[in-house]
């Protein structure tokens, strides 16, 4: 019963959006069909739909490229994030280390990472290695700076409470600093993931044999605009996939920021405690 109401509510909410989208597409289709828009640069929505069906269903050419780009972005992100978090943690643990490393991080930040594309391709070759490297370089800074800022913000009162209960350095770090830093760190990770994808795609534009970036430029320069837009859609899909995966992890790990998740986790803990007490 409740579910049915919920569904009705969603249909009612989505209906105006869908109507608007349909109206825009119809007007667009009509404008091209009647010759109001004559340029070949603006394909009909139906042509884009046809290209999507061809790329994703009948020929399925997109998948190989899709997974290559996805892998490049994710692996690059993993490397960049690991280095960034390791450096941020070391910088927060040792004031000296942080002080003498930070100028180089700043230099790396103000250099547009994209500018390194040709050099990174010369270093790592035309294959996936150079794309992974560029993704890692580009996503490094937002993760580093957010993690470091998170680890450095301290609540004096809480720290004093920890100390007065005799907590060790390690306990203060693991149980106070790290949890306090997680929300900011995840914000940095989300930005980093998007930039890693940009890095992978730009490196593919510059020089590559496979990946959605290659597909995109190939279609564009053969003036196959419908397929080009259909390929663009696959990048949106990768972006959404990466973003929502991160959002999901954020929701699970930093559960205390969301009311509902917090309630669920505390219920689970209460159950665990009760069953533990019963033994």
């Amino acid at each position: 019963m409740h579910n049915d109401q919920n569904r009705m509510f969603w249909i009612l909410r989505a209906a105006p959006h869908l109507l608007l989208l349909a109206a825009i597409l119809a007007a667009w289709e009509g404008a091209v069909a009647t010759g109001l828009i004559t340029t070949i640069m603006i394909p009909r929505p139906s042509a884009i739909g046809g290209a999507i069906v061809e790329l994703y269903v009948t020929k399925g050419t997109i998948y190989e490229h899709f997974f290559i780009t996805l892998t490049e972005a994710v692996v690059g992100f993993g490397i960049g994030a690991a280095v960034a978090i390791a450096l941020a943690v070391s910088s927060s643990l040792s004031e000296n280390f942080g002080r003498y490393v930070s100028p180089y991080a700043v230099v790396l930040n103000v250099t547009p990472g994209i500018a390194l594309t040709p050099i990174i391709i010369a270093w790592f070759g035309y294959g996936m290695g150079s794309k992974i490297a560029l993704a890692a370089v580009i996503c490094f800074f937002p993760i580093f700076v957010n993690t470091l800022t998170g680890l450095r913000q301290t609540d004096e009162d809480r720290e004093e409470l920890f100390r007065s209960f005799g907590a060790s350095q390690r306990q203060v770090f693991m149980q106070l600093r790290v949890p306090a830093a997680l929300p900011l760190m995840f914000a940095g990770l989300k930005i980093g993931l998007t930039t890693a994808l940009i890095g992978a795609v730009v490196a593919e534009f510059a020089q590559a044999t496979a990946g959605v970036g290659v597909l995109m430029s190939r279609f564009s320069f053969s003036l196959n605009m419908a397929s080009s837009l259909a390929t663009l859609l696959s990048m949106t899909l990768i972006g959404l996939l990466l973003f929502y995966t991160m959002e999901f992890l954020d929701d699970r790990i930093v559960f205390w920021r969301r009311e509902a998740r917090m309630a669920a986790v505390s219920r689970a803990r209460a159950r665990a405690w009760k069953s533990g007490a019963a033994h």
Binding site: T194, I198, V212, F221, T236, L240
Partner: peptide
């Protein structure tokens, strides 16, 4: 926002 905007460059 999820689309890498720079990807539109060739288009």
């Amino acid at each position: 926002e999820a689309t890498p905007r720079i990807a539109v460059a060739p288009l």
